[in-house]
Structure formats: structure tokens, C-alpha cells
Design a protein around this nucleic acid. Structure first.
Lengths: 193, 193
DNA sequence: GGCATTCTGGACTGTATGGTACAGAACTAT
DNA sequence: ATAGTTCTGTACCATACAGTCCAGAATGCC
């Protein structure tokens, strides 16, 4: 009917997510977001709503990508290989990655879970989704005999979800490969019992 | 020589720390700090310097208390009992505690490690101190025969340091005792190997 | 080509922020 | 008592912020 958008909302959202991820919510200004996306305030507001809405959509994008990567890695057999791959990918990202970004979800939990209700339910949902992915993969692996009959997929999934957050937070403060490898090795050993 | 202070710097710093811990750095305004401490801006600045200085001193206070608690708990034998106690204390704090505060150090890593150099070196130092406390305790426990001869105290200490951060971040988003108990149980099992 | 509609850039607004300046109160030493 | 020093509260400042508005440009439809 009328003039079409001059920008691609998907790439704009991706750019916005990168800024939130790198700088955090409060420390990111609308000017930062406009500069990163190349959009003006009007276009940003028309396309995504206000700053909080944009954050929530960024979180969803991040979560979708993360879940896809987890599921792809978890196709590996046995499951210990899959988890090893996930851990190694994170370590590579931490050590080689540009700037100390940590986990976007973890950053939002730390910064916003105390005061931003909507952000809290969103990050909780994201963590629950990841936990469910791990739980399902662990249950299947147990059925295949890759885990001890005493293994508790639900507990292990929670442990992995929390452990990955710990690994990435630790790595954000101290991106040292040797230390991160130590942590990953102990985590993997937990699957034995 | 002249008029003495009307307030106690230690309790003022404690109050300021609580606010930073609960709200985060950026979200805490000077008015918040004045209200929490009962001081005026002048007194705050005279006693602690600017907002960033006050944060660093809050972190040191938090770290000193945490280290003391760790060392007290680690006097327990065997070391698995000590770690169980540390984990249980954190879980109690997460579940019963007022508001979702998480770990102050972890919050600062997530919020500030990317941009605030001074805060970064401070939190890294704090994590290294905790790691050293655990490493030493684990090494002693190994000498006492409480751990397998194959156990690597340095790696385990790193794992515990990161794992505690993961537990507390997870709990900040989802303060559910059953889930946290699961995570703690798996973590403790890691000491067996 | 002209009209209607949508997009875009920039200017604008009210508010909240961190930090400072200053005047007066309170206290010690003499 | 008084002089000198230090503390305290408030008023203040410049800045940065999120969000709104509007005029004009660009497009599709007839």
C-alpha cells in the first residue's frame, strides 16, 4: 500500500542483541542501539517497541540460536562426546571471542532478575527450555545405555544448565583456557556416576 | 582536632553494599545510596570517594565476609561435609533470602566485567582468592586421604568456584530448592573421582 | 501524474543522574 | 569563650537519558 521498510528487521534485531549482550541493558542507550542498527529512533520504536521490548526480543533470538546449537551438538553419540563439544565450543568462544560478553541470558539474570519482572520470566523460560533439551537428551542416552542406570537425567540436566552458566561467568572474569578446561573436565566426569 | 564523624563508616559501607548487591551498579543511584546509608552526598563522597570507589570497597567487604565463611566451613572434616555445608548455606540463602540478589561478585562480573576495568581486576582477584582457599583445603584433604590420589585439587577448586557461581545464578532466576539440591548433589559427586 | 499511506531523520521534552559548591552547624584545643 | 577545623545538608549544575512529535521524503495504487 505504501512505502516499504528500508531495513531488514532480522539483521537489525541481531545487531541490537549484540549491543545488549556486550554492554548490558542499563548501560546500553538508545543512541547506541540506533548506531548499531543504523536505524533512527522512530524506526526502532515502530518496529520493536520500547527499549524493554527490544531486549525481550533480543533474548528470544539469542535463545533460539542457542537451543538450535545445543540440539545440533546433542545429535552426537555418545552423549559425553556431545557435551564435550558443547563445552569446547563455549571455551573457544570465551577465549577467542571479542570482549568479555559472557552469556547474554546469564548477564540478564544477574542484572535484571531482581527488578525487571518481564525479563525474569523470560530468562527463566529460556533456562527451562535449555534444561528440558538436556534432560531429554540425557534420558535418551540413558535408554541407550550410555549412562549408568542410577543416573538421574533431570538432576544432571539442571547441573549442566547451572554449570554452563558458571563456566561462562567464570570465563568472563578470567578467560584462561587452562582453567576453563579444568572446569569442563570435572563437569564431564560428573556424568560417570 | 575537630568535629568527629556522626556515622560509623563500617555500617554505612555495609548498607551501601546491600544496595549495590540487590540492585546492581548502574541501577543504583546516589540518592539510593544516601537513603540506605542515611548519609548526605557530601559525607558519602568524603568518606568513600565517588560511586565507583564505593562499589570497589563494597566488593572488598563482601569478599572478606565470604572468604571468612568459606574458611570457617572448611574446618569441617571430611571435606565433603564442609562443601555440603557451604552448598546448603547458599541454597538456604537463595530460597529464604529476601529478593533475588544472587552473588554480588557474580553480578558485578556479569554487569561490569566488559566495561569497567577496575571492577574487573577486583572481581578477578576475589575469585582467585576463593579458588585458592578451596585449592588449599582440597590439597590438605587429599593429604589426609579424603580424596582419591588421582584427584586434582587445583582443577577441583576451579570447578567449585565456577560451580558456586552457576548455582547462585541459576537460583537467582529460579529459587527452587529441589532444583538447587539436584545441582548440589551432582557437584558433590564430582569429588569422588 | 497525483493521492494516500507509510517510513525516516532530527529536533524536542521532561526527568533523573553523578558530581560539586557553599553556607552553616558541631566539635576540639587552647 | 573563642578560634579553627571538620562535618553535614541542601541547593545547584551540566549532562545524558528514554521516549514523543512532526515535517518531509519515498513508495504503491489509481
Amino acid at each position: 500500500m505504501a512505502r516499504p521498510r528500508e531495513f531488514d528487521p532480522d539483521t537489525a534485531l541481531d545487531r541490537a542483541m549484540q549491543v545488549f549482550w556486550a554492554r548490558g541493558y542499563e548501560a546500553t542507550s538508545l543512541d547506541d542501539l540506533c548506531e548499531a542498527t543504523g536505524l533512527s529512533r522512530s524506526s526502532l520504536y515502530a518496529a520493536f517497541g520500547d527499549k524493554r521490548d527490544l531486549l525481550l526480543q533480543s533474548l528470544d533470538l539469542y535463545s533460539d540460536r542457542g537451543a538450535a546449537r545445543f540440539m545440533a551438538a546433542l545429535a552426537l553419540r555418545p552423549i559425553r562426546k556431545a557435551l564435550r563439544k558443547i563445552l569446547d565450543e563455549f571455551i573457544d568462544q570465551i577465549v577467542a571471542g571479542p570482549g568479555r560478553r559472557g552469556c547474554f541470558v546469564g548477564n540478564c539474570v544477574a542484572e535484571l532478575a531482581g527488578g525487571n519482572r518481564e525479563a525474569l520470566v523470560r530468562v527463566r523460560r529460556i533456562l527451562a527450555r535449555n534444561e528440558a533439551i538436556f534432560r531429554e537428551a540425557l534420558a535418551q542416552a540413558k535408554r541407550r545405555g550410555e549412562l549408568s542406570p542410577a543416573a538421574d537425567p533431570a538432576a544432571l540436566a539442571r547441573f549442566i544448565t547451572a554449570g554452563l552458566q558458571g563456566l561462562r561467568l567464570f570465563g568472563k572474569a578470567n578467560p584462561d583456557r587452562a582453567a576453563l578446561d579444568d572446569i569442563a573436565a570435572v563437569m564431564l566426569r560428573c556424568l560417570h556416576a
